[in-house]
Amino acid sequence: MKTVETEKITLAFGAAGGQPTAVEIPVGAVIQRTYWHNVWRRVSRDPFTVACALVLTVVAAAALFAPWLGLPEPTLTNSANRLLPVGSPGHLLGTDELGRDMFSRLIYGGRLSLMMGILPVLVALLVGGTLGLIAGFVGGRVNMLIMRITDVFYAFPSILLAVAIAGSLGAGIGNALLAITIVFIPPLTRVTESVTTQVRAMDFVEAARASGAGTFTIIRIHVLGNVLGPIFVYATVLISVSIVISAGLSFIGLGASPPDAEWGLMLNTLREAIFLAPLNSVLPGFMIFIASMCFNLISDGLRSAMDVRL
């Protein structure tokens, strides 16, 4: 049977090419692939995920390089040209209630909106991920303490909590960022904790302990690699939530403030023009929807590529 076990492979080699030395290379290329290579390959073959990544790249790049794109000044008002419809000459997507160019404002708006979507998740990932890793790996009382505290935050829906925190901190982008970060720390802690607890109970972690390795080495080599995937997937979903929440905070006046270009805020200021220029006023909402949905779909793509069960 031993020969059968290995022979299958030898046959495959034989089929790939005649000489043993010549065979080794293609086989190596097929079989000897790391996990992350595989994930990358699967993601890049998933048309939805690739499309979403492309859209986001374009939006983000445009936002990043907005000052060099030769766009009209996003805060330049022109009371003569208020609410020009979409497709007007010189204003591809029309103008807003103060005559500012919509296209330019949507592009510039991506800067704040995307930043407010991504930054809180990154910071919360750092804090919550560390807490969750500690809680999950150390277990016992430490776990109890950390997890009971995060439970307290779970009593409220995230949007409400963000509004409450931002409201008590006062309006402003900085406070909105802080509020969203605080809201995201508990769920990231919890997800990291549950994945870490699962991984820690696995035999290979026990086998690593049996080899006499220290805790830090075990976490670095055996735990991190197995928890990063699921956490990453979850963080990507949170970005899509964060984009919506931050837009919501700006919409109700707790985030960005005029005359900043920010999608949520634009949605608010255009709200009164909904009957006069309906298309113009839904455009910021469309951007929020697109960005949020793309992050969500990318997360789905990553999830299936990594074969993550959350």
Partner: peptide, 27 residues
């Protein structure tokens, strides 16, 4: 040293065979 009951669960899916074996000496 110990060989564990479950041959699959006791190997880290993210490590190559070589790295799994070398982990102990490395540590």
């Amino acid at each position: 040293q110990m060989v564990f009951q479950d041959s699959y669960a006791s190997l880290n899916p993210r490590l190559s065979v070589r790295d799994s074996i070398a982990f102990g000496p490395r540590a």
